Computed example of a mutant assay.
Amino acid sequence: MSFAKSLAVATLTVALAAPALAQQMPQGGPPSAQDQVAQLGELIELEAGQEQELVALLTDSQERIQSLQADAQSVQMQLQQSIGHDYDEAAIRQDAERLGELTGEMTAESVLMQSRLQATLTQAQRDELERQVQERQEQMRQMQQQMQQQQQPAQ
């Protein structure tokens, strides 16, 4: 499986869990790592050891990403406060560079998390997950086509 395809499958793995979790989760707040792993377990059969490993992996990665997001929000606020007639170009550029670094770190952490998730699954599980992702993509494509057809005026 190519890296891009593997990345897409991993990304969609977490995305597939979102609709069902949104119905189950209380208002305000992302699903927990345990909830995400439980949803993944509904899509593909996970062994107990895999569940524990995935929960630990997701928890650790989510904590790092949340910390980076908090830092990025702080830098964004600093940048907003820099707007004005008495601006400091050097400070703005320094904050913008830091924001870029934080964004890069968040991206790297996300890709690493997805890669680690893939490495935890067996080939059969990855194949099944990819099959389900393709099936869901096809369903989404069909729904989009139906919506477009419904929006077109009658001739």
Rank of each mutant, 00 (worst) to 15 (best):
M1G: 15
S2F: 11
K5W: 14
S6K: 14
L7C: 07
A8V: 02
A8R: 07
V9L: 05
A10V: 09
A10W: 04
A10E: 09
A10I: 02
L12M: 13
L12K: 14
T13H: 05
T13C: 11
A15Q: 12
A15T: 09
A17S: 13
P19A: 08
P19M: 05
P19S: 10
A20D: 09
A20I: 13
A22Q: 12
Q23R: 15
Q24W: 13
P26L: 15
Q27H: 13
G28S: 14
G29Q: 06
P30H: 03
P30E: 12
P31S: 07
P31M: 01
S32P: 05
A33L: 09
A33I: 06
A33P: 03
Q34M: 12
D35V: 08
Q36L: 12
A38M: 14
L40V: 09
G41I: 00
G41L: 09
G41V: 01
E42D: 15
E42C: 14
L43N: 06
E45V: 05
E45G: 11
L46F: 02
E47S: 08
L54D: 08
V55A: 01
V55L: 14
A56H: 06
T59H: 00
T59E: 04
D60S: 07
S67M: 07
L68H: 01
A70D: 13
A70V: 06
A72Y: 04
Q73C: 04
S74K: 08
S74N: 14
Q76K: 15
M77T: 15
M77L: 15
Q80K: 02
Q80F: 02
Q81S: 13
S82T: 04
S82M: 15
S82K: 10
I83C: 07
I83K: 03
D86K: 12
E89C: 11
A90D: 10
A90R: 00
I92T: 00
I92Q: 07
I92G: 00
I92D: 01
D95T: 06
D95F: 08
A96N: 07
E97C: 10
E97L: 11
E97T: 11
G100P: 06
G100R: 10
G100D: 05
E101P: 11
L102T: 05
T103H: 11
E105H: 06
E105C: 05
M106C: 02
T107Q: 11
A108W: 11
A108V: 13
V111P: 09
M113T: 04
M113H: 01
Q114F: 02
Q114R: 07
L117R: 04
L117S: 04
A119L: 09
L121A: 01
T122N: 01
Q123M: 01
Q123N: 09
A124K: 09
A124W: 08
Q125A: 03
Q125H: 05
Q125D: 03
D127G: 03
E128I: 02
L129H: 00
E130Y: 02
R131M: 08
V133L: 05
V133Y: 03
Q134L: 15
Q137K: 03
Q137Y: 00
E138M: 15
E138Q: 15
Q139A: 15
M140P: 09
R141Y: 04
Q142H: 00
Q142R: 10
Q142T: 08
Q145P: 02
Q145D: 14
Q146V: 06
M147R: 11
Q148N: 14
Q150Y: 06
Q151I: 08
A154F: 14
